[in-house]
Simulated scan of single mutants.
Amino acid sequence: MNETKEMRLAAINNLIKFISERGRRFFYRERNRMTGEPQTAYLKLKNNRIYFVDAYTSKEVYAYSGYPHDGFSHGGTLWALVCDFSIFVRTGKSSNGKHGYGGLYSGDWGHGDEIQEEIINYAKEIGYLE
C-alpha cells in the first residue's frame, strides 16, 4: 500500500464518521461531557503515535492493544475495533478482527443487515477491508 500514515488516518476518520452516522451511531455523542456539544470520535497522530479522541470525554487515549485507558467511554468491542484501526493506520494492512471480536464482518453489531453491509462496503472502498 502506497498511502502515507496520514492518508490512512484520514481514511479511518472518514470511516469512523460514516459509522457514527448510521444504525446505532457508534463513536457519536449528542452531548460531549466537556463542551455540551455533539461530537464524533476520531483518531489523531501525536508524537508519531496514534490516539483515539473520545467523543464523550474528549480525552486522548493511546490506541494500542490492551485494556482501554481512562477516558475511553465505549465498551470492549469498540476498543478492539479502535485497536484494529490503529494497526491499519500504522501498517497499511487490514487488521480486521485481530483483537478477538470478529471485526466489521461480525454479525454482533446490532445494526440491521442493510446498514452493516453499507459499513462493510465503505470500509472496502477505503481499503480497510479486503
Rank of each mutant, 00 (worst) to 15 (best):
G100D: 05
D113E: 07
H69Q: 15
T77I: 11
G97I: 04
N96K: 12
G107V: 00
G75D: 14
W109A: 06
G75E: 06
V89R: 03
W79T: 05
D108S: 15
V89F: 06
D113G: 05
G100Q: 07
K98L: 01
L81F: 09
V89L: 09
Y105N: 04
S95V: 00
C83Y: 04
Y101C: 04
F72G: 03
K93D: 07
T77M: 08
G92S: 10
G110D: 11
L81P: 01
H99D: 00
F85E: 01
G103D: 09
S95C: 02
Y105H: 05
S95P: 00
G103V: 07
T77A: 09
R90I: 00
G76F: 11
G92W: 09
C83I: 03
E114V: 13
F72N: 07
F85M: 15
T77K: 11
F85I: 03
T91A: 02
D84S: 15
A80D: 10
G103F: 06
V89P: 05
S86I: 06
V82G: 03
Y105I: 03
G107W: 02
G97H: 04
W79Q: 11
S94M: 10
G112R: 13
F88Q: 06
W79D: 08
G107P: 01
S94L: 08
N96L: 08
H99V: 02
S106G: 06
T77N: 11
D108A: 12
G102N: 00
